[in-house]
């Protein structure tokens, strides 16, 4: 995983609550055995007017003009602003893969579903939880005539939103550490192999049927 770098980005406002992972990346694209290439099928059923199939070239597909992702005003947006409980439903990591593959680097919402949140962090995608009132304000700004830009400073835990000023963000310290250093947490865990072996020995004495 690459270390998370601070950046200035454009906000895409997706004004829906409970956006589920089936909507983020529909099931037919989960047949892939690769980790990349999901971007063109991000929000497939909302984004296109036809039915998407895996392996299809999406460049000529009819776009849904009413879906915000297709609004030219937000071209190049890499910060997704959305409503509560984003990423609910299935545990498919294809959801953050698709968001990252499309170019999103930050997600802002009043809340995220637990498994999705975990999967996002593992892929260097930063989920930021903000109070509902602040999210409302950002929606107001992001849906104006000009797109909203935000400076994301993960190192100092703050956002600077144009027209709104500084917003402090709160991230789990371990997640913060992993994101800014781009850590591979399997490698990290393997440094504790002795602790794991000691645990197994202890546990086998207490609950031998687990290791039978």
């Amino acid at each position: 995983m690459k270390p998370f770098e601070n950046f200035r980005g454009i906000v895409l406002p997706l004004d829906r609550a409970n956006v589920d992972t089936d909507a983020i990346i529909p099931k037919q694209f989960l047949k892939s055995i690769a980790r990349t290439g999901f971007g063109p099928n991000l929000f497939d059923e909302w984004r296109y007017l036809d039915q998407g199939e895996p392996g299809q070239d999406c460049s000529g597909r009819p776009l849904n003009p009413d879906f915000v992702l297709n609004d030219p005003k937000y071209a190049g947006a890499n910060i997704l602003l959305t409503r509560r409980n984003f990423g609910c439903g299935s545990s498919r990591e294809h959801a953050p893969w698709a968001l990252a593959d499309h170019g999103f680097r930050v997600l802002i919402a009043p809340s995220f579903a637990d498994i999705f949140h975990q999967n996002a962090i593992k892929n260097g995608l930063l989920p930021i939880v903000l109070d509902e009132e602040i999210v409302d304000e950002l929606f107001e700004l992001a849906t104006g005539d000009e797109p909203l830009t935000i400076d994301v400073d993960l190192h100092n835990l703050k956002l600077d939103a144009e027209g709104r000023g500084t917003i402090e963000i709160d991230i789990d310290p371990f997640h913060h550490h992993c994101l800014i250093h781009g850590l591979d947490d399997i490698g990290l865990t393997l440094t504790h192999a002795d602790d794991i072996a000691a645990y197994e020995q202890r546990r086998a004495a207490e609950a031998p049927w687990l290791f039978g």
Binding site: S91, R92, Q118, K122, T189, I196
Partner: peptide, 21 residues
């Protein structure tokens, strides 16, 4: 018992552990 993403499937395969709060 709980669901995990693919990175965590790999983590469990490699280490028999997960990082959890």
């Amino acid at each position: 018992a709980f669901g995990v993403g693919t990175s965590e499937v790999e983590h469990v395969l490699a280490t028999q552990c997960l990082l959890q709060k």
